[in-house]
């Protein structure tokens, strides 16, 4: 946005430079749990047993923990990228599209690649998917930088373009002619991401965890991170301080899109067997919630992605045991963020 009247820097710095007090978090969590109980009750479940089912169901067996960690992977990866963008107040809400583009372009590369040796194929496919997601983010950044196009609108609308683009690609050029449903050929086994030792979770989780300290370092200790934070405090002040904000916004959008693209291709190589329309699973939007709950900080996002993954897996369990529709989970997630926003605000009064 190019509004010439920036908010006073004092307010913005508080908004950025705080780690919420533990009391605040606990209080917010309590309110959120009560509101959530209301939602579950309205949806026809028993809140107490539902909460118990979510926790015991998710952590009660190896297979559900595996499921949960599988959900963590895309949320963590996308969330890290969004944390960088949001800290600079670059509102990328196109992660869903960037994820899809990364998944399909990287997946197509893995299927069509003439070289089928894992050592080459896996890293190359991961790079291609990341680059594709970054390219999708680049469009948004470039529109913002060159013409001042509001990034919220362009990134959101590009999600739809990506969804229909993927639908076309799996229906026509990438389609496996042997099947009735529009889906690609199998992802070659040489391209499968290996599982982590002792876990049935693919290596994407490890990649995400490796990026946690990288992002912490980049945001806290490098000129890039400093510039992004200044950008987030006050765009005009950043420009006045000699930062090439346009270039920085493009860069931030590419990094953020790259993380989403990486999450997409990791999901394809680690979990999916084919490319199809089910790739559009909403991780890009859930990751926005994850990044906000994690307060746009890498370690916070590790915690919030585990939390969101837990209520996602737990929500499926409760759906079966108490007929509470899965959509209740989305309501809970959004409520938690709203409560946290208000709690943060009240704590500073």
């Amino acid at each position: 946005m190019t509004a010439p009247a920036p908010p006073p820097a004092v307010r913005s710095r508080r908004w950025k430079d705080r780690i919420g007090s533990p009391v605040n978090v606990v209080g917010a969590a309590a309110v959120a749990l009560v509101l959530g109980a209301g939602v579950i009750a309205v949806a026809g479940g028993n809140p107490i047993t539902a909460y118990a089912d979510i926790v015991t169901g998710t952590f009660g067996s190896r297979s559900t923990i595996t499921l949960m960690l599988g959900e963590v992977t895309p949320l963590l990866l996308i969330g890290l990228g969004l944390a960088i963008a949001f800290q600079g107040r670059v509102w990328n809400i196109g992660a869903e599209g960037q994820y899809l583009v990364g998944a399909v372009v990287g997946g197509a590369f893995a299927i069509l690649s003439p070289v089928q040796a894992s050592v080459v194929l896996i890293p190359a496919a991961l790079l291609v998917g990341t680059a594709a997601g970054a390219a999708w983010g680049w469009i948004v950044g470039k529109f913002q930088a060159v013409w001042g196009v509001n990034e919220v609108i362009s990134s959101l609308l590009l999600n739809y373009v990506a969804i229909f683009g993927v639908a076309y690609l799996v229906r026509q050029p990438l389609r496996d002619p042997d099947y009735y449903l529009p889906q690609s050929k199998l992802i070659p086994s040489a391209a499968r991401l290996p599982d982590l030792p002792f876990l049935d979770v693919h290596a994407g989780l490890l990649i995400g965890l490796i990026f946690v300290p990288v992002v912490i370092y980049a945001m806290g200790r490098t000129p890039f991170g400093f510039k992004v934070r200044v950008l987030g405090m006050n765009r005009d002040a950043a420009r006045a301080a000699g930062i090439d904000t346009n270039r920085l916004i493009v860069k931030v959008m590419m990094i953020s899109g790259g993380f989403a693209g990486l999450a997409g291709i990791a999901q394809v190589l680690g979990v999916e067997s084919r490319l199809n329309n089910n790739l559009d699973a909403g991780y890009g939007f859930t990751a926005i919630i994850t990044a906000l709950l994690g307060r746009m900080r890498p370690l916070g996002i590790v915690l919030s992605s585990v939390f969101i993954a837990t209520i996602t897996v737990g929500g499926d369990i409760v759906q079966r045991s108490q007929q509470v529709p899965r959509a209740a989970v989305f309501v809970l997630q959004a409520l938690f963020v709203i409560v946290l926003l208000v709690a943060d605000k009240l704590a500073r009064r």
Partner: peptide, 21 residues
């Protein structure tokens, strides 16, 4: 007076979940 962009996005997600539910 919380961040308007975030409020909007979160409410869209809330409405999406609540209407489906």
């Amino acid at each position: 007076k919380t961040e308007q962009v975030i409020n909007g996005i979160v409410i869209v997600l809330l409405a999406g979940g609540a209407t489906s539910l």
